[in-house]
């Protein structure tokens, strides 16, 4: 998921940076004081998740958790993922500084979209539909991120079809794992602390 330095061409980097800044601005504007600890908690989860590899499939990828972040944070997923990526770049040399904007966009846009898609289901009383939407958001955010990574690589000259096939195959196990994980987390939260998810 983390695109390294020197892979993308300048227009893609600039466009990604600009769009990420816009998302960051919206996210910060919507971040209430009450929400800050929750944002920090999910930033920490995102920061550490990248260290957990899922050794299934041809190329073992790591957890991203952007589906869950999207469900819990909405637009504030942007600052959470941005800070997580900055720290990963500084401390783990993961991704890079020039690609920070594109990487933020590739992981935060699916988070926001999937969060918006799934959240109405949590307000309804049907427990089943909530769990189904949690699974869809968890797995869907990974698939969407994979598509966006493939897209940014192909905009920089890589042929789209082989690149995206490679990325999709690598991330199918992660999508399944994150789908299950998000169902587990959401079902626990709905039982114990529904206000964390519902108060949007």
């Amino acid at each position: 998921m983390h695109i390294s330095e020197g892979v993308l061409i300048a227009p893609v980097l600039l466009a990604g940076g600009g769009a990420a800044m816009l998302g960051l601005a919206i996210g910060l504007r919507r971040m209430d004081v009450q929400e800050i600890p929750k944002v920090a908690l999910l930033t920490a989860a995102f920061f550490v998740a990248s260290l957990v590899h899922i050794p299934i499939g041809p190329s073992n990828a790591h957890l991203v958790l952007n589906g869950i972040i999207g469900i819990m944070l909405g637009w504030t997923a942007f600052p959470a993922i941005f800070i997580g990526l900055v720290l990963q770049a500084v401390l783990f040399q993961f991704g890079g500084f020039t690609t920070l904007g594109v990487n933020t966009l590739n992981m935060a846009v699916p988070a926001v979209l999937m969060g918006a898609l799934a959240r109405p289901a949590f307000r309804s009383d049907s427990g089943l539909s909530a769990l189904v939407m949690a699974a869809v958001a968890g797995a869907g955010a990974i698939i969407l991120s994979a598509a966006m990574v493939a897209g940014s690589l192909s905009l920089s000259g890589d042929p789209f079809i082989p690149v995206s096939r490679l990325i999709f195959v690598a991330h199918i196990p992660i999508a399944i794992v994150e789908g299950i994980l998000s169902v587990l987390i959401i079902s626990v939260l709905l039982k114990t602390k529904p206000e964390v998810i519902r108060n949007y």
């Binding site: 908690l41 550490v48 990248s50 957990v52 073992n60 783990f92």
Partner: peptide, 24 residues
Amino acid sequence: SMFVSIIIIPILVMFCSSAQAHRV
């Protein structure tokens, strides 16, 4: 819960044998 996770998450990561960053 933030502080609890600050303590717990790294310990989990430590014990997770496949805990390495994915970088070439």
